[in-house]
């Protein structure tokens, strides 16, 4: 376990009220309901500010959706949650991303460890040009796992609801590229699950999939949310409305930096948003 010099101390985070028992960060934290907390997060690509002062809490074992018009910083935000932006030249960030109360950007934290605990699935299914089995086994293998890989592969594929479709020996060792787009995306989810993360980030996971494959992934997300924390970026507002427990709305300010303008239980955001800008966006009058 990495050590952090930053501990979460009673911050004024806006927190979606999902149940009467979750009404403050302190109680959420005490109950173990808080997975990730962002505190005054700002991000830049060179001189361009992509995010400004985002403060929000992600609840454990819930699905949190991030929505907003193109260019509002959704992907930047989700990529900040497991340090995926670190590799982009000119990227810098201020504020904190607290995971289990520790700032993942602290110098003492190993980004590789962060990415193991907070996995990611991308927009376009990106299986490695290897067999299905090797894709699922990839994470544990490079992490030096020496136990029974077969068990890990089966478990990951089961969790990703792909096992029944690929369990035959022939199939399992065929190239992952022979799978359909939807299957490939579930394989990518299996690959992320194989290293036993706590959080799964999904950046537009269904945008390259057909409606049936999309609904399968959504079902899978609901299943996984029983044990994992999921954060999803989506362009598809109906998808956010269908799957997410809470929804965050990002929008560009006049300087084109993304700001969090509303965050709350999904039902509230989609039926009775508090912000006029949210209303205009989700009703299609803007954006």
């Amino acid at each position: 376990m990495v050590k952090s010099d930053q501990q979460l101390t009673a911050p004024p985070f806006p927190l979606p009220v999902l149940s009467p028992t979750i009404n403050s960060v302190e109680s959420a934290q005490a109950d173990g309901d808080l997975a990730i907390a962002l505190r005054s997060l700002s991000a830049w690509y060179g001189s361009f500010q992509a995010l400004r002062d985002v403060t929000m809490a992600v609840l454990r074992q819930r699905i949190t959706a991030i929505i907003g018009p193109s260019g509002c910083g959704k992907s930047t935000l989700i990529r900040c949650l497991n340090r995926m932006n670190d590799l982009i030249p000119g990227f810098r960030l201020t504020g904190q991303v607290l995971f289990d109360g520790q700032d993942i950007y602290s110098k003492r934290v190993d980004p590789v460890d962060v990415r193991r605990r907070i996995g990611m699935v991308f927009q376009k299914p990106n299986p490695f040009p290897k067999s299905i089995y090797e894709n699922a086994a990839f994470g544990p293998r490079i992490n030096g796992y020496v136990g029974n890989l077969d068990e890990i592969v089966e478990r990951a594929l089961l969790l990703a609801a792909l096992w029944d479709e690929v369990k035959d020996k022939d199939k399992l060792h065929k190239s992952a590229l022979t799978l359909s787009g939807g299957q490939q995306q579930r394989l990518c989810i299996a690959r992320a699950l194989a290293v036993e993360p706590e959080v799964i980030l999904m950046d537009e996971p269904c945008s390259a999939l057909d409606p049936v494959a999309t609904l399968k992934i959504e079902d899978l997300m609901r299943e996984l949310a029983q044990n994992y924390t999921i954060v999803i970026v989506t362009h598809n507002m109906q998808q956010a409305a269908r799957v997410a427990d809470s929804t965050a709305v990002l929008m560009m300010n006049e300087d084109r930096a993304g700001e969090l303008i509303e965050y709350g239980p999904t039902r509230e955001v989609f039926t009775n948003p508090k912000e006029k800008r949210t209303e205009d966006y989700i009703t299609g009058r803007f954006g």
Binding site: M237, F270, T271, N272, P273, T278, I282, T283
Partner: peptide
């Protein structure tokens, strides 16, 4: 049309 928010209401 998938109406939302005040449209849905």
């Amino acid at each position: 049309q998938q109406p939302l928010a005040s449209d849905l209401r």
